[in-house]
Simulated assay, not measured.
Amino acid sequence: MLVKHFCRLLLLPVVLMLGGCKLVLLNPDGYVARQQSDIMISTTIIIALIVVPVLIAIAVIAWRYRASNTQAKYDDKWDHSHQLELLVWGVPLLIIIAVGAVSWTGTHQLDPYRPLDKIAEHKPVPANTKPLEVEVVSLRWKWLFFYPGYGIATVNELVAPVDVPIHFKLTSDTMMDSFFIPALVGQVYTMPGMQTVLHGVINKPGEYKGFSANYSGAGFTDMRFLFHGMSQKDFNSWVEKVGASGQALDRTAYDKLRQPSRAEPIHYYAHFSPDLYERILNRCVDPGQMCMSPIMTDTMHSRGMESAPAHGAAMH
């Protein structure tokens, strides 16, 4: 009885810590995140098939062949067993093959650059569905979201309609961050002068947390934002509300926004300079700066290499 009460006492801190937690990584509301969760759970179960029996065997062998157990059979001439050798090497090999197959398949199916072909299990993307385009810029220490299809922008608030694929393009102003919405999709890095891509979809209306998962300085802990999944009607109303905010995000406003700040409140921009994201990506927001695309194009041509057309030019 005393041992039972002691065990309960040891488990009490764990229960208290997990009691108020929603284990979003194990039960996300986004289709891509749910597939990633399934892979994580499946891999853990497969690994447990070898780990748990080994732990049990250690305890059983230690108890059975303890010094005080004089009844245990001991064979001082035993040195090899083909059956045991097959078990020791064969089972872990099968486990490695199974984990590798699950990981390899999942890695290719959930490639962040791969457009979605389903919005839910057994529910393909409807024909002629246009993904919601969102351009993401990580700043110190806040998140800027452009909606090029609607001409609006927001800070520290991301909104998307339910069951509509989202196509993210991501970059950074000055430092490397990691864009992460656990309920929606896995994390992806943002880097200055580079663009990463991410595809996701949210399947339930709700308010979800997003943040930077990569340490980026003193304001890192405040680099958080809200992600809202809404019905199409509510999303359209939200777009109208942002469009009526009356603020403009031009180069001057962006220069002010890009200054380091902590716990930046949510605010909206009714419109923005059409090429602002491209200039942030190509590091030519400030007047007189040469964009990286022409520079890279000239470098590649000078080396006899072909390249894609350049994006942007110097801002005057």
Rank of each mutant, 00 (worst) to 15 (best):
L49E: 09
H199I: 04
D111I: 03
F179I: 02
G30E: 02
S302G: 12
Y150H: 13
N236M: 12
I50K: 02
G90R: 03
V188D: 09
P131M: 10
K142H: 04
Y189L: 14
M305W: 13
V88S: 08
S293C: 12
S178V: 05
H271C: 03
V99P: 02
A33Q: 01
P13E: 06
A59P: 01
S42Q: 11
G229W: 02
G210R: 00
H199W: 15
A213M: 05
S302E: 11
L170F: 05
D75V: 09
H82I: 10
K241D: 07
M1D: 08
C291H: 07
D75P: 08
D163R: 14
Y113V: 08
E121Q: 14
E157D: 09
L2T: 14
R251H: 10
T299R: 13
K73W: 06
M292V: 14
N27T: 09
K73G: 05
C7S: 14
A253H: 03
M223C: 13
R140N: 09
Y65W: 15
V159C: 04
F272E: 00
T105R: 12
A183M: 04
I96V: 15
E135M: 04
R224L: 10
G304H: 08
V201L: 05
L86R: 06
G246R: 12
L281Q: 04
V14Y: 08
M296A: 15
R279F: 08
A101Q: 03
L110Y: 03
T107W: 06
K77Q: 11
N27C: 07
S245K: 01
I46S: 00
A160E: 04
I295F: 10
Y31F: 10
